[in-house]
């Protein structure tokens, strides 16, 4: 073998080795860091910048699970999440606080949650990791006529008013049912009198297991037994200020 042939051969081997290294690094990098999926990525991009500190009251009316999901990576990860509004006497759409939301899955398992100061509510994924779609939902005395097919974000279908809205008040249009609006009489007391416990002073969201081991997702509310202290602490730090998890499903 001549020296030129040997050099060429070595160069070829080096190039092949380099290619393998680059490809390997790309694959490893993709596995470790790249979760790019254009559909949820576009949804997240459209949500805009955070204003203030992320908390339990932030981004009312936006699709919670875009970020609070395995893909989005924001904590807490949610099985269901949404925002409830009411219309006051002047026709304004305002956040509905203290509304009891009941979600029932196709196995007839139910979770309850109470809306907080901005109308937000959610059920953590840890508290419903086996949720079986489709779901039926009742917010206050209002029952959803349809079903939730497969997306745990209420706002995927119940969008805030946008350019496509035919009803500029609720946002209803050809591809949106408009925001979830309950009666003013649904506000406030339903959660306080509910066996699921109450959000209390923090205006917190209470998420409970039904008839099972203590509710995993008591959030932000004052007192109560059986909630997850870890969750409550996390939410409290995010601005809800609640102490301790609210009542579980025992």
């Amino acid at each position: 073998m001549s020296s030129n042939t040997l050099r060429a051969s070595m160069n070829g081997a080096s190039v092949r080795h380099a290619v393998r290294l680059v490809v390997g690094a790309c694959l490893a990098g993709a596995t470790l860091t790249c979760r790019y999926d254009p559909v949820p990525a576009a949804i997240i991009d459209q949500l805009g910048e955070e204003s203030g500190t992320p908390s339990a009251t932030h981004r009312a009316g936006q699709p919670c699970l875009a970020c609070h999901s395995t893909y989005g990576g924001a904590e807490p990860q949610m099985a269901i999440g949404g925002t409830v509004f009411y219309q006051n006497g002047q026709g304004q759409i305002l956040p509905a606080e203290g509304v009891l939301v009941r979600v029932t899955d196709s196995e007839n398992t139910e979770r309850k949650a109470c809306t907080n100061a901005t109308g937000n509510f959610w059920v953590e994924e840890d508290n419903w990791d086996d949720v079986a779609f489709p779901l039926r939902v009742r917010a206050g005395d209002r029952r959803m006529r349809g079903i939730m097919g497969r997306d745990g974000s209420c706002a995927t279908c119940h969008r805030l008013p946008d350019d496509d809205a035919l009803d500029s008040i609720t946002g209803a249009g050809r591809s949106s049912a408009g925001v979830v609006v309950v009666a003013e009489s649904d506000l406030g007391d339903a959660c306080a009198s509910s066996p699921t416990g109450t959000g209390g002073a923090g205006g917190g969201t209470t998420t409970t297991g039904v008839g099972g081991a203590g509710g995993a997702g008591g959030m932000g509310g004052a007192g109560g037994a059986g909630g997850s202290a870890t969750t409550a602490t996390t939410v409290g730090a995010g601005g809800m200020g609640g102490a301790g998890g609210a009542g579980g499903g025992a």
Binding site: P134, G146, I147, G149, R150, T156, C157, A177
Partner: peptide, 9 residues
């Protein structure tokens, strides 16, 4: 329409 035609499907 009811089972498959929801806005999220």
């Amino acid at each position: 329409e009811k089972r498959c035609g929801t806005l999220d499907c």
